[in-house]
Design a protein around this nucleic acid. Structure first.
Lengths: 194, 194, 194, 194
DNA sequence: TATGAATGAGTATTCATTCAT
DNA sequence: GATGAATGAATACTCATTCAT
């Protein structure tokens, strides 16, 4: 692993543990096993590592989704697997996600967010395209727009549950069910019975 | 306007202009026209003003929705007005929204978010309840869950467009149309023709 | 003594002892008996205290000259007393003088030098004016120009001796004599015998 | 031009442009077109290049004086040419001169100043010796002492004008005239009429 | 000689917070 | 309640110097 990667992974770990404000560059470089100054050879400021972190996080998300969604399964199962993946991922990395969001938002880097998310948008677009071609979703579906909508919908609900809410497991499960149902309707899922 | 209110409104303005990290208490008190120490009579720390800001922001949002959505209109129009309101609001206050989010996230106050949003959840719940009673949305709709889903869906799409995206006006409009369509399907909107 | 004055005097002392580069603000405030941040209430940067130091140094110089030059004495004695004063002063404060010069030069403050020196120029102008009126110096003397020339001449020679040179006492004395002689000729000193 | 020379000339340029504190070794080596480490093969520290710069500056000064002063001319003309040269030189290189002074002063290298200046002292000594032998200056002139005095006098006046002063061209010219007159008197210039 | 990536000691400056008035 | 001068802890960032290649 080269120095840049080591910095990014160390940063993820330390940010996750201490939060943005309380994380010192000193902590990051110590964990990465490099000198203080070396950090600045790769990133010009404390927050400029955020986009790199975001990239790693999206990679993790895609890997997760890729692994969990069985492309052989029928659409309705794949949809469930997708939602489950995103929910699980969000619950697992809630702290890092919150800080990446905050870190990007409080810096000049927020515009990079879409670029970083691009690969995931593409994955979802492909997912929807396949479904459309199979005729299991409504034919008037705009793929690109709906990809963003789907991601926004699932993630925001997952965030509501895992970031802000005190909700118990049962309610979480019910909320997830409801999202799935809403999604099926929203996508115009076609089957003998929903 | 009492001192506390003056602080909150000054804080909104300064945070909006300078961002969280670069905003100093000195800036806020200067704009509020009070002394440095007076701030601490009302808020115990820099970030503790955030929930108060969030409250004001939600108030603004509810007022906006309340004003834009014509309760006499038919459901499909009301839905459009609702989505329009939220989109407009998000575009108008994107900076403050991002900072409130970041400010809450980077502090211990994030859990207060749901509480602050509660009134808006209730407004939407009521909106959906009415629609359900009118029979224009599917009968298996869980009101509370769907309220959160609806808000998450519309807001996240609006954020994607106005916070991160460089998209032109046309694309924004199309994306909004798509959200509306998705919503109608998702809510199981019933009519002779969609 | 108010805080600003305490800072200036502490700065003189610390700068003199440690030199510019090795002096920390921490040293100055410690000696001044104030908090680190308090320094910045009075001076915006480390070097911005230099003009204030320069002012104090010129005050000292004028006081010295004022005290050493006996206005009752005959011109040739007054001239000797003046040169002696400047030489003594330069030898005594050589470190501070060098650092003030360096400090002003390496900052944006160098233009303030003339302003700070103004009172001394005036003192010397008055000194020459009196001599001219007494008819003991040449009548074509331009007072203002010669005041500057006189100061430059004496100071630069003193600096050569005390700042740079390794010269022994004898040579220093001889050099001073030579300056005095040069000055008498330069001023066109009129007497039965020089 | 070998690497050492390239460093010295690059250093002069960068120091002149940025000042001492703001100049980084990185800037110097970049302009010199060499690697960071190479600098330290020729100079052991940042400030240790200063004497080399000073040497170059004195070489320039001597070359200038040598070129401007016509050894065939009569003394009073040669004196004028000398003063003109020094004034011109000072005005041209004021920034570098200030920084060399400051750079030497703020380091341990200040004692080298006299050594560096030695060739110029010798040039002036020779100039005065010739005049003395020609009988155009007073016979009680101490050559070595007066050489230093002359240089100090002319340079300090030139510095006053070009480094610190905001004086207009007319005043500068007048001041120069006055220096010349003062010098003639000080040197005891002998002629039918001054 | 030459390189330039890596080092890490060093500190000026900031600013949230306090408290005597 | 209100003030604002004073505090001092806290740290991002710099850059002269080194050294393995």
């Amino acid at each position: 692993m080269d120095k840049k990667e080591r910095i990014v992974h160390a940063a993820i770990e330390v940010f996750q543990e201490k939060g943005i404000e309380k994380t010192k560059i000193a902590d990051i470089v110590k964990l990465a096993g490099i000198a203080q100054g070396t950090y600045y050879l790769y990133f010009p400021s404390k927050l400029s590592v955020m986009p790199a972190i975001a990239e790693v996080m999206v990679e993790k998300l895609i890997a997760r989704v890729h692994h969990e969604v069985n492309s052989e399964a029928i659409f309705v199962d794949r949809l469930k697997q997708l939602v489950d993946s995103i929910f699980l991922y969000t619950s697992e990395y809630r702290e890092v996600l919150a800080l990446v969001y905050a870190g990007l938002a409080s810096s000049e880097h927020i515009r990079q967010w879409e670029t970083v998310y691009q690969p995931f948008y593409e994955w979802i677009s492909h997912f929807l395209q396949t479904a459309k071609e199979e005729g299991v979703v409504r034919s008037n579906l705009n793929i690109e727009s709906t990809a963003k909508i789907l991601i926004g919908l699932v993630e925001s609900t997952a965030e509501q549950i895992y970031l802000y809410d005190h909700t118990d497991e049962d309610k979480a499960k019910q909320q997830k069910e409801e999202v799935l149902t809403f999604l099926k309707y929203g996508l115009g899922y076609q089957s003998s019975a929903i």
